[in-house]
Design a binder for these strands. Sequence first.
DNA 1: CTGTTAGCGCTTTCAC
DNA 2: GTGAAAGCGCTAACAG
Lengths: 337, 337
Amino acid sequence: MARIEDVAARAGVSTATVSRALRGLPNVSAATRAEVVRAARELGYVASRSASNLASGRTWSVAVLAPSISRWYFAQVLGALEHELRPQGYDVLLHSLPPGREEVFDATRLVRRVDAVVVLTVPLTGAELDVLRGLALPTVFVGASVPGATCVRVDDVAVGRLATEHLLSRGHRRIAHVGGDPAEPLNFQAPVDRRAGWMSALRGAGVAPRREYDTNGSFTSVGALAAAEALITLDEPPTAVFAASDEMAFGVLAAARRRRLRVPHDLAVVGVDDHPLAVVADLTTVAQDVVRQGSLAAQLVLAALADGPAHPREHVLVPVTLVRRGSSDGGVRTGSH
Amino acid sequence: MARIEDVAARAGVSTATVSRALRGLPNVSAATRAEVVRAARELGYVASRSASNLASGRTWSVAVLAPSISRWYFAQVLGALEHELRPQGYDVLLHSLPPGREEVFDATRLVRRVDAVVVLTVPLTGAELDVLRGLALPTVFVGASVPGATCVRVDDVAVGRLATEHLLSRGHRRIAHVGGDPAEPLNFQAPVDRRAGWMSALRGAGVAPRREYDTNGSFTSVGALAAAEALITLDEPPTAVFAASDEMAFGVLAAARRRRLRVPHDLAVVGVDDHPLAVVADLTTVAQDVVRQGSLAAQLVLAALADGPAHPREHVLVPVTLVRRGSSDGGVRTGSH
DNA sequence: CTGTTAGCGCTTTCAC
DNA sequence: GTGAAAGCGCTAACAG
């Protein structure tokens, strides 16, 4: 493997010049740079990451913490982050925290290992967060609101409200909620907020949220299917369901199908995300631009990296939009209005 | 940030001993080791990755190349890989190749950067593969068959055959296929093989595969929906569809729903994967144990890393199983047999 | 604009 | 069982 010294020898310059030339730093004449680039190419030279890390203190990598990447949302954000960071020369280090993990996440593992951290819907305890803060690495949270930190997220209360108000506007009054597990790890705010939005919209319309309409789908389609079956068999079943994710909404649709309920006539359904299958399932949903959130987070990371420690914290709210489809609106194919 | 020297000073030993003690190497007395560990903990010492990389040549990281992680399959394998590799001390470097990428993937970027590479369903050109081979890094391919390399995959011809034979056994003769884009990048073998399995099963049953039944769903639900709508409106529409992925099967189910076809009575559907939504959609599918493939790949990587360059190549075929559900079999809720 | 020279913080022979 | 010392391959002052 060629070393910088070999390139220097071949180009007839010093290693310092090679380093400058190859990294595009100023103070290198065009001719010299061309010569160095040629020599490097001829030798197939690639700088050793560890050596330059060690010498410069920059690792050119960013850690992404996520609770399981198997859910569509996380995979999507992760992809967007990577597509934004890699062209800028950063590697993405995946760090998924097993759900229901026993061990404490030890942020010190990241020290001198990455230049920045992106945390997706932080399933971290307060103590873990403190350690992370202690590292003084640029950190961006996606999908969570952490006081004093840079965050990219949607307003989840608004999400719940938007979905529910839409159902109210279609004349529904018996609107159920299928959400996340209330016993989730700390700081997992989205489900709580979406539920709050549901309640707030109902109350705003003078409808009292019923306890038996407030169910837990564990953020999985199977969980939501079970929750929906229970709802459907109530003495007074809901006429509409707000599911806090599209994946759960698919479970609700499946339950309706099994019970031979017509959607949206017998049961209207609204989800959250605009999952790729939502259009195919003709599911009304509150779309959150997931890729945009990932890209924004990446840009904030890059900005913080460029500005140094004095970089101001920001809190970016990405707008959401209601995408009306047949599951709540009637429509050419499924509708009955 | 504490350095090894600080720990050495505090423990009253040399840096060499600290290094040995902390890495669990032999030739350190129990007492010394305990003392070192204590000093390290007290100082919050974590070894600098770059420094130890530089000194030892090991990076303790593994690159995972994947074509977009937004598809369920990739996210799943990636998750499994990480869960297996991290406990062994390896970091996972994500390297997703944008679909339809223009640039050539330059494997030399991995040199001195990672200890091993895992390639998911290799969308690499021959030249790219050659460079990768030239790196002489332990490499494992998942979901692809690369001559002379270590591979973990399912027998995709068998997958197609299994699905199709199941439909034949249910009495179907007009069985369509919704697959991947034939113009996909090189080496993306799975769709080709699944299609071959479909044809082979048909021929084995004395049924001639019809050209108009062989369609392209681009491995997306929307693509499959369109393909299925075209199939349904044929003069002589199929009575069953084999979709080469569950995501595509969902598109087919949606098309059936839109056209008010009853599943499986008017149209039977079989997918591939056993996606979490498959059970909810009551979709018959050829299950491939994706997590298992990821874990196996990780174990092969670890074995190769342990054995050194002399490690033998292996080719592991993970078995698949048909999971019968209502979309092809009738059944309590959706059936009509 | 370019070269010289110290390190960056570890690991690893080789002695002891 | 432990220590001394020589690097690993690069970057970053500082001269010139």
